[in-house]
Design a binder for these strands. Structure first.
Length: 490
RNA sequence: GGGCCCGUAGCUCAGCGGUAGAGCUCCGGACUUUUAAUCCGGGAGUCGUGGGUUCGAAUCCCACCGGGCCCUCCA
């Protein structure tokens, strides 16, 4: 039978229900217990034969002639109903068999008991249609495998695959615990604009849109940084935001064009304070969410117990690629050295881009255990503060877990003159054709000129953190509705 | 943007130049403690779309649509 026929049949059943004067979509369900509460009640009083009403989706039907079993699932769990013709009556029993399908929501009222196999069961006295489903649920044996359907119709994925449901519950818990952690340390949660006339704070292409009333081009934010720093200037010493940011780039197992970022800024602190904070936050999180500071990613085990190693970027690149970028004062020589390690160096690349590429290709994939890379070259970090003893480096770290970058932090540059020069340099790069270079945000520079206290700023990619903590290999497994191409008429 | 792979029943898949198949779902029948219920019977298709080669195409070729993986982009 084709899909159209199945739907037509279900519509016929819907009409049959209506013709009996029954509303197949009543406004409310009179339930006394969730399925979980009903099972718990039975555990407490096994011989009580307590009468309960539960409600849920029918996920299995087993007909036995003049008796039938139906599995009922709600958000809390599952329980089965036992329907005997002699208990519910001949007419009701007929209605059950001829109008209830897999996927329908029904309410069941009756006494709790256990079958001889020990299964918690409600012996139905009556049942009510709560919502008739016109389309069938995914097939029960294999669940839902088709990756495209899983993402496009995530509700089917959630119905069919319990581990998917579990991942998103975990994601929610992680974010909840992060909020609790930040709040307990005295941080203030704030919200800053998503629509901006100047998208700065990161090296990425923005999405462009248009504000009709103001007749103005607008950008979707690519970072939270510049507005949060304005708040530090304004006197909020500890602020954070958990929000969606948007980067106009391709999709892959690591990248989704909209993703969730935590950024925090703390006045009078530097980046070393943040390394300890991140270690504490993530290891605590692992303990609370996973019940352990160990988890697996692919075939390797990840240990979140602090302290984590801190490796200067220069050492990490030198060890993994053999290139000591500080040994090359001449850009051409560095270019040649990088090319010899297999990096496809392009003539337009500057020193920063080459170093970054060495990091991405040779170092990043090996950083499975939580690892801080520290002391980045200044060219790679236009918003970070220079190290006093070596001004070509900045006080910055990036955190890698499972071979992916998870966090980025630095002591914030608060010298308005240095900041202006570095942003002007970015503007020159942009003018030279680098459309990912920072834009010079004059409004932000004026804010800095009013004085910003020394401060440390942190960004954590929440999606990648959830990946690390749930052992997911694709970012699409931790985003409920990941970006996909529009479906055509095919 | 480039390379490789995939698209057949509602679902999971087989078939790979000669009459479109299996299991589950679905429909009918038997069955009052089942739970991947079982047993008997029956349906179910634009073989992603369009074009080409061929006596004949799900099968071979081309283009397109959609997806996956890798690369690119993306600190």
């Amino acid at each position: 039978m084709g899909e159209d026929e199945i739907i037509a049949l279900r519509r016929q059943k819907l009409e049959r229900i209506r013709s009996k004067g029954i509303d197949p979509y009543p406004a409310r369900a009179a339930r006394t217990h969730t399925t979980k509460e009903a099972v718990e009640l039975l555990d407490r009083s096994p011989d009580g034969h307590d009468v309960v009403s539960v409600a849920g989706r029918v996920t299995a039907i087993r007909q036995m002639g003049r008796a039938s079993f139906m599995d009922l699932r709600d958000g809390s769990g599952r329980i089965q109903g036992y329907f005997k013709q002699e208990s519910v009556g001949v007419e009701s029993y007929e209605r059950l068999l001829h109008t209830v399908d897999l996927g329908d929501f029904v309410g069941v009222q009756g006494a709790l008991f256990r079958t001889k196999t020990g299964e918690p069961t409600i012996e139905a006295e009556s049942f009510t249609m709560l919502a008739k489903a016109l389309r069938p649920p995914p097939e029960k044996w294999h669940g839902l495998q088709d990756v495209e359907v899983r993402y496009r119709q995530r509700y089917l994925d959630l119905m069919a695959n319990p581990e998917v449901r579990e991942t998103f519950v975990t994601r929610s818990r992680i974010i909840q615990q992060i909020r609790r952690f930040m709040d307990s340390r005295g941080y203030l949660e704030v919200e800053t604009p998503i629509l901006q006339s100047n998208a700065g704070g990161a090296a990425a292409r923005p999405f462009v849109t248009y504000h009709n009333a103001l007749e103005r081009q607008q950008f979707l934010r690519i970072a939270l940084e510049l507005h949060l720093k304005r708040l530090v200037i304004g006197g909020f010493d500890k602020v954070y935001e958990i929000g969606r940011i948007f980067r106009n780039e391709g999709v892959s197992t690591k990248y989704n064009p909209e993703f969730t970022m935590l950024e925090s800024y703390e006045a009078y602190a530097d980046y070393t304070v943040l390394m300890e904070m991140v270690e504490e936050m993530i290891s605590t999180l692992a303990g609370e969410v996973l019940g352990s500071t160990l988890t697996t990613a692919g075939d390797s085990e990840i240990n979140f117990s602090p302290p984590w190693s801190r490796i200067p970027l220069r050492d990490a690149i030198r060890e993994r690629s053999g290139v000591d970028f500080d040994a090359y004062s001449d850009l051409e020589e560095l270019r040649r050295a990088a090319a010899e390690t297999g990096v496809p160096v392009e003539p337009s690349w500057g020193r920063a881009k080459i170093i970054d590429e060495l990091l991405t290709r040779h170092v990043e994939p090996h950083l499975l255990q939580p690892t801080f890379l520290i002391d980045y070259p200044v060219e790679l970090s236009p918003l970070a503060k220079r190290k006093t003893e070596s001004p070509h480096l900045v006080e910055r770290f990036e955190l890698f877990i499972g071979g992916r970058e998870v966090a980025n932090a630095y002591s914030e540059l608060n010298d308005p003159i240095d900041q202006r020069e570095r942003l002007l340099e970015q503007s020159r790069l942009r003018a030279a054709g680098d459309d990912e270079a920072e834009t010079a945000d004059e409004d932000f520079l004026i804010a800095l000129e009013h004085g910003m206290p020394p401060a440390a700023g942190l960004g954590i990619g929440i999606d990648r953190l959830v990946m690390a903590l749930t052992g997911s290999s694709s970012i699409r497994e931790v985003i409920l509705f990941p970006a996909l191409r529009e479906r055509g008429e095919a």
